[in-house]
Amino acid sequence: MSDFLLDPNVVFLNHGSFGACPRPVFEEYQHWQRKLETQPVKFLARDLPELLADARSQVANYLGAQPTEIVFVPNPTFAANTIARCLDLGEGDEVLITDHEYGACRFAFQFAGSKKGFRVVEQAIPLPVESDQAVADTFWQGVTDRTKLIFISHITSATALTLPIPEICQRAREAGILTMIDGAHAPGQIDVDLGQLGADFYTATCHKWMCAPKGSGVFYVREDRQQLIEPLVVGWGWGPEKTFHRDNEFIEHHEWLGTHDPSAYLTVPTAIAWQQQHITPEVRQRSRDLVHTAVQQASLIEGIERVHPDSFFYQMGLIDVTTLQVDADALKIWLYDTHRIEAPTIRWNGRTFIRVSAHAYTTEQDIQHLLHALGELPNQHQLRQA
Rank of each mutant, 00 (worst) to 15 (best):
D3K: 06
F4P: 01
L13R: 04
F18N: 08
P24Q: 04
F26R: 12
E27Q: 04
E27H: 03
Q30D: 12
H31P: 03
D47E: 15
A55P: 05
Y62N: 09
I70Y: 12
P76V: 15
N81A: 04
A84G: 04
A84V: 01
L87E: 10
D93Q: 05
D99G: 14
C105E: 11
S114Q: 02
A134S: 12
V135W: 03
V135A: 06
Q141R: 15
T144C: 04
R146T: 12
T147W: 03
T147C: 09
A158Y: 13
A158C: 01
T159S: 09
L161F: 05
T162R: 10
P164A: 00
I165R: 01
P166C: 08
I168P: 04
A172P: 07
R173G: 15
R173K: 14
R173Y: 07
M180K: 00
G188W: 07
Q189K: 15
V192Y: 11
G195S: 15
W209T: 00
A212P: 04
V218D: 09
D224G: 14
W236H: 06
W238M: 11
E241G: 13
F244C: 07
I251P: 03
W256V: 09
P262G: 08
S263I: 12
I272D: 09
W274N: 12
Q275H: 15
I279K: 08
P281A: 04
Q285I: 07
R286I: 05
R286C: 01
S287E: 03
S287D: 03
V291P: 00
E302D: 10
R306A: 14
P309M: 02
F312I: 01
T322Q: 06
D329H: 15
T338S: 10
T338N: 13
A343D: 02
R355N: 12
H359S: 13
D366Q: 00
D366R: 02
Q368A: 14
L371K: 01
L374M: 06
L377N: 02
H381N: 13
